[in-house]
Each structure stands twice: as C-alpha cells, then as structure tokens.
Amino acid sequence: MSISTEKLEKFVQQLQEAYSEESFLQEYVERSSFNPEQHTEREYVQIGKRSNLPKRFFFEDEAVVNQVLSNDFAKTIAQGEKRHILSTIEKQANSGHLSQVTVDDFEFDIIIEAYSEVYEPDYLFLPNNTEYRQTLFDWQKRGHIETGYRTVAIGQSEIEIKWIPSKLEISGGFLFNSDSIEVVQKQYKDADRPDEADFMPGTDWCSEEDFLMTYFGKKFNGDPDEFDFWLRTIISEPRLKRGGICHLKFDEEN
C-alpha cells in the first residue's frame, strides 16, 4: 500500500503546532533565534528522540488519526527541555553560582525567604506529589494562595505555580523570573540533516523557521515497515542571571 506524503506533511504540521503549545521555551525563558553572527560561540545541546514510526499510519487508504501521537512526541521534547534547564539551575545553585534556600520543613516562610532572593519572580516550580499538593491546599485555607492553588501573591508579585513531574528526576523547587533564563534556539535551517534521513532526500516537511526538526529514514533497524524517525530541537546552554533565580533545596524526607 502506498504512503501518502500529504499525511506525512500533516503529521509534521501537527507536531509543530503541539510543540509550540508544549515547549518549555515558549513561556518560561527568554528565547532568541539563532544568529550565526552573534551566537556561533555558544555551547549547544540536542534534545531529541529517535524512534520507529509505523508506515501504516500514513497509508493512503488507512483512516488513522495521528493527533494523539504527535502530541505525545511533542510532550517528550518539551519535558526534555524542562529537565535540562531545571537541572542546570540546580547544578549551578549547588555549586554556589545561584541563590539557594535549604528547606527542612516546607512552610510558607520558605517562599518568603526565596522571594527575597529573586527580583519580580513569576514562576514557582514544585515537585508534583501528594505531599506538596496537600501543603498548598493548606496554604489556600490559610489565605496564602488563590483558590485552586495556581497563584501565590507576595509583595507586588503574582507567582504562577507549576509542577515538576517525578519522572524528570529533578530535586527541589525553583522560584524565578523568566527573564533571568536566556536561551538561544536553532531553527531547521541552522542544522545539518542526518545522513540516514533518506526516505525522501531533501524533504522533511519542515519550514526553514521551524524550531522542531523532523527527519525520516526508509527503514528502522532494517524493518521496511517502519520509518526511522528523528525528532529534535537544538538549544544553547542556558545563561542564568544571579538575582533572578532561587533553588529550593528540600530535606531528603520531603
């Protein structure tokens, strides 16, 4: 059965749309597009996934909806971005380059203390587990945070609360001003195409300005029924501004 290039193109478009909504860089950092005259000397990392992708999903006569698949792939990349940036903050805080507050008991006073270390914070990231959710519920009853514990107000700041999935294996919490995390991101036009991406050489259905890069190979591990599929984004190592970020180092029992 023949493969529909229109279905492949639509799938890539769905990936781009899902990534734009999910990307950690979209909202939580100061992102710049790569400029070879300004950013060549930066150090870059690739966040991606190489996977099998059944060709039957794209057969002409198959009624397959790939929206869920594209959303799952995009979330994988977005979670990788989050893991990399938050773990970089944690490492720099542990080494003394960024502010850090040690927490024995997770009480509201710790947020006040961290707030004094950060100018105009707009995000508070906390581990996504029952204990911290219950603590925030208690804070809500005491009037420290809004109903639904999505925002905490301190001074003139309205700080949005976000959760860190346990699978990211990030320790502690993070209070920061998103302007204090600066990242450069390459676009499709800025990166070389893998040599093995040989399904339709020169055609990956990405636009030159896309931040999410996709590539297709004819076979996955020699299986002609599977695409060898690459999905990636390329970002610089984040530059972090002292005074704009505080790491909350929690006691091991938390």
Rank of each mutant, 00 (worst) to 15 (best):
F211M: 14
T102R: 07
L98N: 02
T130H: 06
E158L: 08
D138K: 09
F220P: 05
S207H: 12
S99A: 14
D210M: 07
G217H: 02
T147P: 04
T130A: 11
S180A: 15
S95C: 07
L98M: 03
D210R: 06
W205N: 04
H84V: 14
V101M: 00
D210G: 11
I181R: 06
V183C: 11
T102H: 11
Q156F: 12
I111R: 07
D138T: 11
G202P: 09
T102P: 07
L124D: 03
V103C: 00
N129L: 01
T88V: 14
V152P: 04
G148Y: 07
G172R: 02
G96S: 01
F211T: 11
M213E: 07
F174M: 06
I159R: 09
N221M: 06
S157F: 05
I112S: 01
N129E: 10
I161T: 07
I145Q: 06
H84I: 10
V101Q: 07
E209F: 04
W163V: 04
E113S: 05
E169T: 14
T151V: 13
Y123M: 09
E169L: 14
T135E: 07
G155M: 13
K91E: 13
L136N: 03
N177W: 02
E90L: 01
Q100C: 12
K186H: 05
Q156L: 12
I164E: 00
D190H: 09
D223K: 10
E209P: 04
G172I: 04
T203G: 01
K141S: 14
K219V: 12
A153D: 10
H144W: 13
A153L: 08
S116V: 08
A114G: 02
P201K: 10
R133M: 13
Y115G: 03
L86I: 03
Y119L: 12
E113A: 00
E131K: 08
F211L: 15
P194K: 00
E158T: 02
K141T: 14
L86D: 06
I159W: 02
I112G: 00
G202Q: 12
V152W: 02
N128A: 09
R133N: 12
F220D: 05
D105V: 09
I85S: 07
F199V: 04
T203S: 08
S171M: 11
D179N: 15
I145P: 02
G217I: 09
A191M: 13
D204I: 08
S180N: 09
I161W: 00
Q187E: 10
L126N: 01
E208W: 05
D198C: 05
K82I: 05
R83P: 02
M213N: 03
D104W: 08
Y115S: 01
Q187D: 10
A114S: 11
T102C: 08
Q100K: 11
